[in-house]
Nucleic acid binder design. Structure first.
Lengths: 210, 210, 210, 210
DNA sequence: GATGAATGAGGCTTCATTCAT
DNA sequence: CATGAATGAAGCCTCATTCAT
């Protein structure tokens, strides 16, 4: 009866296959990523995802008790990747320079249209589902805080207008970038030029008046 | 030549009631709007939509031969409403003033969160489906042209920097506004302040340097 | 209330549009024929049939109160055509010669595969539905009687064995021909040779022993 | 090379129970058989079939991914049974004697009207659907080859005319028997006498001239 | 008489999920 | 732990049929 849960205290060290488990979990998340990017959250079936992950459907349910849980986990995973991206800006001397560099790297990445699509799916899911909205806003706050730190640095250097409220500006830039990003899902003529223009407008908006 | 259409007065049987048909069609689109806003395109079933429209499922299919057709029609309808919104700017003396006014009116409208959600669904659907992307881009071009006209007016008045390319700026503003708009689907503290901030940043980006 | 049926005695001669009605009816039967041949009875929808007939669906229901009625009418029509075919044999001097001629004419007709398909649909429908079976057997009896007359003529001429029972032979030939006919629906190599062989075997079966 | 299939004993999870699967599959085919005989292929719904098989509709789809696949499988199953029937003739010393015996056994079997009905459904489906036609013709060829072997044996014994082409005769007999068989779906007076007459005619057609 | 408009019932198929092995 | 097997509920769509015009 209590065999499966028997005396965890008797197990020394970390559970035997925690590593393999985490690996499998990631494998599923990757497969889900590919599926969601291809067809969206709702149009991707558990069968499709598990097949893409090279696992049985029932197996999937041992890692995510619900499809919604899988969706949520993937969203969280994705949002963390976004945070990592923003944190790259910290390394750049100048916010706008850094933004430019990161943005150009992103726009040149062939996987960006898919990433942009996924971002839209996430925004839409947050609009539909209050739970997702909460998760999204929590991640958003961390990102904005990171971004505002870089902005403040820019203000100290003088490249960004000191009158601007760093946190508010962070929120707006974030939103703006989402808008610009959403265009990268579409077959537009010159994505690179488009992104360059976006960055340039942001620069104009933030730069200290003479 | 006109044999098949000759003498419509001779047409036997019950005449087509174009008016009632158009009305019913709109009634369905309205119901679909409500459903799509509530749950998104894919999670809304034809049963749900037709029930909301006060019609049978089979009846729905006399107006839209496919669920995707209904989705597309609704998207087109929505995009046209967006165009109308942009055209309101023409009436304002100044682009930025006009933008401010329209934006404030929008943010105060209680239906805006839903409209914003629908906008996200449309963007996501465009990312998924090439046909929708085409429809979207076509509408986008019309909107951008209208917006660029207003921008040019601003440049002539001197309120907008003459070095900026009106069409490119229109594209970016449009994208930026989408990003800002997407935040209105979320339970943020002060939407009005947020939008005001967005407009202010756009003003800074566009305004002629002293 | 009794307007539609009002005083038929007051109408002189035949009802006003009996002719037009019969024409329309035939027009529908022809359309149904084309549809049934293409997809069978059950897979052909009233919408498809009426569209093929250039009429509204509701219009169809004024001529055939039920789809099954239409099917039955078409079966009857088809069976009568079969009877007419058999009666052509009467004109030939010799049964086997006549059979040969009719069969060759049939096998060379490009519409024969379709006719053969329809014949199979009719047989299958008769196997499913007792009502159709009755209709079918009634027509069969008339055909067999006609055929047996020709056979008797052949016996009198000496070309057919006098020991054979004309009616029984008619039944068997009829069934045999159905079997041979059913092969003409399939993409076989040389239909004409096949039919020739069939007739030849029948000839051997019937011919008087030396 | 055999990496993916390596060491089946290492396969994790519940092992496939091939036996139970085959049994269930047959159980479904039997149920489908009953339904198809009752109402034909197109009028039998998946709900009806699965209910008759004591399985859920979704369960049905684990064994046959499509209704058409089920139909095709059943057709194939049926055609193989026909082949087995023909192969019984091999055991008889004389073709015509054997034919007589098999035919009498068939006509006395109470399930024959149903089998005959199914045969008609198959022929009709082959006329409708090119894929089925191909399957049908392939089976037909095997049957004809088996039949022609028996015929050749008859020719060697002298009971069958040596001038006849065994393969051609096989084709015709097969077709003729289909025609005769089709009559067994109908409420005719004396099926046994009818079949006896059919065999007698075939005997006359094949027997060596004195 | 003929058509447009509407609909309940039902068709095939897929889904997320469970459970014994 | 992982899989095979099963399923109720639901999804989209089509059908034969009716009825007001």
């Amino acid at each position: 009866m209590n065999r499966t849960k028997a005396s965890p205290s008797l197990r020394r060290g970390r559970p035997v296959n925690a590593e393999a488990r985490a690996e499998r979990r990631q494998q599923i998340l990757d497969a889900a990523h590919r599926c969601f990017v291809r067809r969206g959250f709702h149009a991707s079936s558990t069968a499709e995802i598990s097949s893409e992950a090279g696992i049985s459907v029932a197996g999937l349910y041992q890692y995510f008790p619900t499809k919604q849980d899988l969706v949520t986990a993937l969203i969280q995973h994705e949002l963390e990747a976004d945070l990592a991206l923003i944190q790259q800006l910290d390394r750049a001397a100048d916010l706008l320079e850094g933004l430019q560099q990161v943005a150009m790297a992103v726009v040149r990445d062939s996987r960006t249209p898919q990433a942009a699509h996924l971002r839209l799916e996430i925004l839409a899911e947050a609009a539909r589902d209050a739970g997702t909205a909460k998760v999204f806003l929590a991640a958003e706050r961390r990102i904005n805080r990171a971004l505002s730190r870089v902005i403040r640095k820019g203000q100290e250097q003088g490249s960004i207008d000191r009158d601007l409220d760093p946190m508010a500006v962070a929120e707006h830039i974030n939103a703006f970038l989402d808008g610009a990003f959403s265009r990268l899902t579409l077959p537009i003529t010159d994505p690179e030029a488009f992104v360059r223009g976006s960055i340039e407008l942001i620069r104009r908006a933030l730069s200290a008046k003479s």
